[in-house]
Design a protein around this nucleic acid. Sequence first.
DNA 1: TATCCGACACACT
DNA 2: AGTGTGTCGGATA
Length: 926
Amino acid sequence: MNAVEIEEAISALAGQPFDPAEFPFAFLEAFGRKPVEIKRLRKGDSNRSDLGGVLQRNHIHIKTCDEGTVAETLQALKDSPATNTARNRVRFILATDGREFHAEDLSSGEVVVCGYGEFADHFGFFLPLAGITTVKQIRESAFDIKATGRLNKLYIELLKQNPDWGAADRRHDLNHFMARLIFCFFAEDTGIFNGADQFTATVTQMSDGDASNTHEVIAEIFRAMNTPTRHGGTLSNRHRRAAGIPAWADVFPYVNGELFSGSLDVPRFSKVALGYLRNIGRLPWDQINPDIFGSMIQAVADDEERGALGMHYTSVPNILKVLNPLFLDDLRAQLDEAGDNGRKLLNLRRRMARIRVFDPACGSGNFLVIAYKQMREIEAEINRRRGEEDRKSDIPLTNFRGIEIRDFAAEIARLALIIAEYQCDVAYRGQKEALAEFLPLDAENWITCGNALRLDWLSICPPTGTGVKTHGDDLLQEPLDQPAIDFENEGGETYICGNPPYKGRNKKEAGERSDTEHVFSQYSGSFASLDYVANWFVKACHFCNATEASAAFVATNSICQGEQVALLWPVVFSEGFRISFAHTPFKWSNLASDKAGVTVVIVGISKTPGGAFLYSDSEVWKVKEIGPYLVPNSSVFIEQRTKPLSQVSEMYLGNMAKDGGNLIMTASEGRELVEKIGSDAHFVRKFFGSEELIHSKPRACIWIDERQKNIAISFPEITSRIEKVRQFRVASKAASTRAHAKTPYRFVQMSAKNGDRAIIVPRVSSESRPYLPVDYFQAGPIIGDKCFAIYDADLWNLALIASKMHIVWIGTVCSRLEMRFSYGNKLGWNTFPVPKLTEKNKADLTRCAEDILLAREAHWPATIADLYDPEKMPDDLRAAHDRNDEVLERIYIGRRFRNDTERLEKLFEMYAKMTGKADQPDRRAS
DNA sequence: TATCCGACACACT
DNA sequence: AGTGTGTCGGATA
């Protein structure tokens, strides 16, 4: 269940009569606990309560009680041994008598004390019960979740009533209509309209019982809001009279600002839809939080996202990870520096008034809203220090611009900015001042709906005049003891920011592929392998080159690792940019409980010379330069090679089956098959992939030599499997797979050698192990495509792979799956710089490799996963690795390296030398 | 054309 | 929650 569904279930429960016996189960059910769990709790099997209540392990201890004893009951729950038994891991305690409702989060000590009827308002408090790890903002945003759920219902009902509005060409109208509705709800609850609930009340009163004329009522109200109440600057009913606005609609103010212009068509309502509308109107819309609401609500109109309703919330701290280093930190530093100096404060205010924030993938305006609110906060502090508390804001909303491809999100982004402006005015200047200047809305359109990769950004966020500087009035009133104001650029500064969509190579659609071709058209080479998000960096370069702006985006970490590095960053650097700040990979949190978050980086690019800041979760590192791997002071690109750079053996990919699970089988299936085919058992071979290697659980596979094909197909057990492979390959959507349907008796891709003894490395493995899980096999097994293999090789190759030097290299240069290591031969092994090894070196390393293998063997049958568990790694194995590192690192520099940073620096330096690329630690010179 | 291999707003236990 | 599958499709020889 998602947060919206839980809110609905909890509200429904709160509305029902209190049933003391049933309540605990109903409560848990509402939080999405599985029916099986509830059944077992009812039966008592899993109920650990020692107070006659209900205790679900890992979650909650609930007890219903007699009236008036809630406080005592909660205390009893708190003191109960069952609650305090560590293995029960009770997170919450809850007591209620149907009148009062008390609960406590034992992990934080936070409490909820409310009337029984209001407990639904606190559902956010209990969201961990549903496996949803909440960010603070969301927990406090009960309103936004409720509103999202209710609006979604209305949206679907309206689509049902007005199927024609669902067509592509009418969707915009429906989206626009929803935005107008939301504005009205907000306006009627915040004093923008004259009476409280004026909109909802009017629609309710004027509608017929069957809602048959509701669309006409709303249309009239909208028409009023699109008709001025002034003529020639003075109040006049002239326009309204001319338009024939009825008296009951005439009470609504003139709003427009494009919100109420254009088609005023309103969809037809059903009784149900009208009910939803009234229900939504009753919500306290003054509690709306535009940065949260926006990101939740975009799911309302998006067919694909509706299932994940409200789940794509982007947390404010994460957005600030982009905005703070990009420009907010600098503004705050200038504020600090200004102290109470009126002139300096004024300069800062003037500077801020000309800052434009541009998000070319703005969604529902999250980044823009947060940037606006942060800037207003700084401005308010300036005005406070200057004694101008109720001064009108100098920060124009029109300086916050965006591009968004989804129509509804674009509508919401504009609305969110309007609401943010109003809320900031109320907060910093007061309700009266806010109201006085709010209407009518500014008519300029700041959010463009379209494909950011096809639009000309300069036309959407044009560089304003860069001509002669004019001194503003209030500047001239101030005595200047400095020759000029701090900012010469009349056009002001522009900051590009955002979180554009990520889409990997194989996930891009034809249109998206052609977008990339378009954006990269002026560069030679192929950029098809780049993630979709890379386009935004390049567009930003082009924009910044025309206007002296700087940019920072959130992006998938894969643009700073693996093959994409050598594609994207040379382009960015060749445009004259450097990485001015970056955030090392972290999980981009969202609300989804079941979805693994994507791992992202934040990269800021700029043309301004200077140092750079490298952020990680725990620290900030000021460095001279940040390289494309987000490693300090090394800007080399590693390019794939088909042959090793160093004098090491060649490594090949294992065999790729593409068999639909028919050539490869479990070990026991393999044994059965062997029994059936008897003497020709050599057709069944041991099979090793990553899993099998790391956990020592070999599978089996059918392996048929081309020449023995005819013998093999004489066994019906083999033939039936082969036929299934053929069917599977024929049905594949990939032409490359279909092509192999003709040879279903063999794997589609075969490794260079098979069956020989081999050093093998898994392609993907956990990042938590201190060394890569490399292993060595005697002749026999077939190696799957989840592994790389070096066949018939000397063991010193294994010593290299098992070293710290290598894991550091692979972790930096190769791509990652989430944070996991993703090994590559072309990118990681073939590029690995190794000093020329003497025969003595090789002998020493071989000895080290043997020692590692022997140490492992001593712990048989422990698997590699067991042995390399960072907590449990045996001392003798650790010692063997240590000796290996010692020997190898002495070969590199004659001593041990101090840390991984030093290891990387050496490796990058060697790579640059060996490939003939000069490492340029300082590119600013060029 | 036949391999090869990096990547996966993930996909399994 | 920890940790690797299966296969697509662009690149390269």
